[in-house]
């Protein structure tokens, strides 16, 4: 699934077919799950419940897309949960201090703060040559510690937050809740970015083969730096939306979220070794995770069994997906001959 610069026209055609097929496994699994759960419970297949699932995965999609771009470059960003928590806390305090502030400005503020945090990750990784997992494991602790130093134990509760800020994620001026629209907009933007901009294509090239990318004149360090800044930006945005949606900023906001944001892309077929991954895969992967969570509650699985079933389903999804992919690949190879 190399989308490098040196691809030929024929391989492009072949690849795009494969890429289109790539999400079949995960789609198949999702549909199967929906059918089973619908039979088990009538409340599952309602517009209302569908809306709840989408609301629950919106933030996961936004951050999952950031994580995907990082993973494509053979990296990983474990600090996402801490970045979200820190931005949520800082923006929430600011919004409470200036209740008249335009919520969109709060969103921009969050994006700027996130960009700063992401650029620190980027600098350590791209310029300092520290392996991504180490750098972001470090900033995971550091940023979370800063959340605490900043809040000094105070939480922002919903009654303190101005209504306008809460409406940022909850409002429904376009019928669909804003939060879902934000996630959709981010998905479309990331899709366009990866497909139609030079930097976007460079991300795949760097991940597929760093040496070849360097030879081809791509400034690898710069691409990697940018990817972590983007991750920070999307986490900043997610932090603001998180504070708005849950109407609170607490010291443990988004604690442990990082592994979920890796799970979404991984279930969605993003190659953990870099080089490949699609927006639609991440959206589908996140949707599957959201559906699993929702279904477990609705089918009234004992709360003590929920995590086990969830883990088992993720494992199954990954195995089924890889089996289907392997089938497809052998089929394509034979077709070629």
């Amino acid at each position: 699934m190399v989308i490098g610069k040196e691809r030929t026209a024929t391989s492009l055609g072949l690849m795009s077919i494969l890429v289109r097929f790539r999400e079949v496994g995960i789609l198949f699994f999702t549909v199967l799950l929906i059918i089973v759960v619908s039979i088990l419970s009538p409340v599952f297949l309602t517009a209302h419940n569908f809306r709840d699932i989408l609301l629950n995965i919106s933030i996961l999609v936004i951050v999952g897309l950031a994580q995907m771009m990082v993973i494509i470059t053979r990296g990983i960003d474990l600090s996402v949960g801490s970045m979200i928590g820190l931005v949520a806390m800082m923006v929430a305090f600011t919004v409470v201090a200036f209740p008249g502030m335009n919520p969109l400005f709060a969103l921009l503020l969050g994006i700027a703060l996130g960009a700063a945090l992401g650029s620190l990750n980027g600098a350590i990784i791209a310029w300092g040559k520290v392996p991504p997992i180490i750098a972001t494991l470090g900033t995971l602790s550091i940023y979370r510690g800063l959340v605490f130093l900043y809040s000094r134990g105070d939480w922002i509760n919903s009654f303190e937050m101005p209504m306008g800020f809460r409406q940022l994620s909850k409002g429904t001026p376009l019928v669909i809740p804003n939060l879902i629209l934000f996630a959709a907009a981010v998905a479309i933007l990331v899709f366009l970015f990866l497909r139609y901009t030079q930097t976007g294509r460079d991300i795949y090239a760097v991940g597929s083969n760093p040496q070849a990318a360097t030879v081809a004149g791509i400034r690898v360090d710069q691409v990697i730096f940018i990817v972590y800044v983007i991750s920070g930006i999307l986490c900043g945005m997610a932090g603001v939306l998180w504070a708005s949606r849950f109407e609170s900023a607490q010291t443990n906001t988004a604690l442990g979220f990082e592994l979920q944001t890796v799970a979404g892309p991984v279930v969605g077929g993003v190659n953990i070794f870099g080089g490949s991954g699609t927006v639609i895969g991440v959206v589908l992967g996140s949707f599957l995770l959201g559906t699993i969570n929702n279904a477990l509650t609705i089918v009234k699985i004992s709360p003590f069994w929920q995590l086990a079933v969830q883990g088992l389903l993720i494992l199954l999804a990954v195995i089924v997906d890889s089996a289907i992919l392997r089938r497809l690949q052998t089929a394509t190879k034979q077709g070629n001959r």
């Binding site: 419970s41 409340v43 209302h48 419940n49 709840d52 629950n56 849950f246 609170s248 607490q250 443990n252 906001t253 604690l255 969570n293 929702n294 509650t297 609705i298 009234k300």
Partner: peptide, 15 residues
């Protein structure tokens, strides 16, 4: 956890 509690409450109302 605020998020999980919120979702569980939604789940109760749906179910």
């Amino acid at each position: 956890e605020d998020e999980k509690s919120y979702n569980e409450a939604l789940g109760l109302m749906t179910t």
